[in-house]
Design a protein around this nucleic acid. Sequence first.
DNA 1: CGGGACGCCTGTGAGC
DNA 2: TGCTCACAGGCGTCCC
Length: 277
Amino acid sequence: MPELPEVEVTRQGIAEPLAGARVLAIRMGKPLRWPLGIDLHALAGAVVGAAARRGKYIWLPISRPPAEAGGLLLHLGMSGSLAWMAGVAPPAGAHDHFDLVTDRGTLRLNDPRRFGAVLWSPALDQDPAATLLARLGAEPFDTDLTAERFHAALRRRRAPIKGVLLAGDVVVGAGNIYACEALFAAGIHPLLRADHVSRPRAARLLEAVRNTLARALALGGSTLRDFSDAHGMAGTYQQQAQVYGRAGEPCRRCPATVRRRVLAQRATYFCPGCQKR
DNA sequence: CGGGACGCCTGTGAGC
DNA sequence: TGCTCACAGGCGTCCC
């Protein structure tokens, strides 16, 4: 579910209430993708730092002198969301699988499908975090990611451009919704081979990825079914989607009809009129 | 090595 | 009404 905008909106919602909060307890529900990797009681008394984000991962640094510091790496998977609850939290529901109880309130992960993860790592550049983050491409808003570098990276890939965006090893953040939307904005057919994207089109695509993610972020992300930010607010980007989820409906820019086809196991939406190979 | 399929898990909506 | 099936925002792992 959550792509970069949803994750970033979530991070923004938890950063302030959590910074400086003291951990009282951790509660786990059903198993998530991986084991937590630290004893449940080991963090009692520890202090949470400033929440950060890398790709679709959230990093919560935690200091716990005299024991060594570390942090929790969180991922929302397909159906996860975090909620910040000031004061005493209500009882956990069937899909509440992680609570970080602090002296200020509780951070709760709700994740029906349990593809999400919460795991302890001594640092971002140490395992297990390091291995998970090693495969990630550039942050989309990193100014080091120039059009030239983006184009050079695409030229090394023969897979369809949509698949390369989704893989996240060139640029992170665009999942299935925003990859479709960015390709539409750039006028590029999702099946076009990445190494066939011209230099000017690569520049357009990079801009489209950035604009699409920034716009979604400003709108609080997309809420297709049940995503909400840390304060329970739904996103509204989905109402502005140009192609995602609009198969059979008219294109908003040309007379053609939006189409859906499956590419690398994922539904892919595009306008055959606006998006060219 | 790059690329694609698989599997993880549960809920929902469509169709019968 | 109730069942079955396809599908859903991600991604690590395995196999070619």
